[in-house]
Amino acid sequence: MKSTILNEIIEKMKVLRENVKKVIIGKDEIIDYMIVALISKGNVLLEDVPGVGKTVLAKALAESIELDFKRIQFTPDTMPSDIIGVNVFNPKTLEFEFKPGPIFTNILLADEINRTSPRTQAGLLEAMDEGKVTIDGVLYFLPKPFMVIATQNPREHFGTYPLPESQLDRFFISLSIGYLPLEKEVEMLESQILYHPLEKIEQVWKKEDLLKAQDIVKEVYIDRDILKYIVNITDATRKDSNFSLGAGPRASIALMRGSQAFALLDGREYVIPEDVIRMAIPVLVHRIVPAEVDNTTRSRREELVKDILKKVKIPKVRVL
Rank of each mutant, 00 (worst) to 15 (best):
G131F: 07
Y179D: 11
F104T: 12
N232G: 05
S174N: 12
K184Y: 08
R224H: 05
L198S: 10
L182I: 15
A213Y: 04
A62T: 07
K92L: 13
S244K: 11
Y140M: 05
L45T: 08
E208G: 11
G85C: 12
R257P: 00
F69P: 10
S117F: 08
R170G: 03
I314M: 15
D169I: 06
L175H: 07
E95G: 03
I308K: 01
K21T: 02
V186C: 01
G159T: 04
P143Q: 09
T75P: 11
P91W: 10
F171A: 12
G178R: 04
D209T: 10
M128N: 02
K54I: 13
R238M: 01
V186Q: 04
I173P: 07
I230T: 07
L182R: 15
L163W: 04
I177F: 03
E130R: 00
I253F: 06
A254G: 07
S117Y: 09
E199N: 14
V186P: 02
H286G: 10
A37G: 07
S166L: 01
M34I: 15
M147K: 02
D225F: 00
D82S: 14
R278E: 15
F98I: 09
D32H: 01
V49P: 03
L265N: 02
F89I: 10
R257D: 03
Y229I: 08
L46N: 05
K27H: 07
G159L: 04
